[in-house]
Amino acid sequence: MATLNAYLLVGAVLFVCGVICMATKRNGIGVLMGVELVLNGANVNFVAFSKFTSLGLDGQVFSLFIIVLAAAEAAVALAIALNFYNNHLTIDVDRGNKLKG
């Protein structure tokens, strides 16, 4: 049951859900959650490849780096979102309409 393709399917579902989430959510933090899903899709792939293919340990190391970098990115994104909120009193991405050309 736990085959490589089953893992890859989980990864693909997470990835696609994340992309849809990024595309449809208006809320800045909601979009960030979509990003986390996308990154986890990749993570599942890495760990599965690490287990089942000749990628070996490199997959696990890579996924560790992803987790760390994603945390850093989320911290910055959150700081930016809070800053946006302080200026606009909303976190709705579409409500920011100062920048139009």
């Binding site: 990864g11 994340g18 992309v19 990154l39 899709g41 920048l99």
Partner: peptide, 22 residues
């Protein structure tokens, strides 16, 4: 304007990084 630009940039940028990673 600045905070709006940063939010748009970070949201899209993080998404692009995720897609690249996949």
């Amino acid at each position: 304007e600045s905070s709006e630009a940063a939010l748009k940039y970070v949201v899209y940028g993080a998404g692009a990084a995720g897609v690249m990673l996949y």
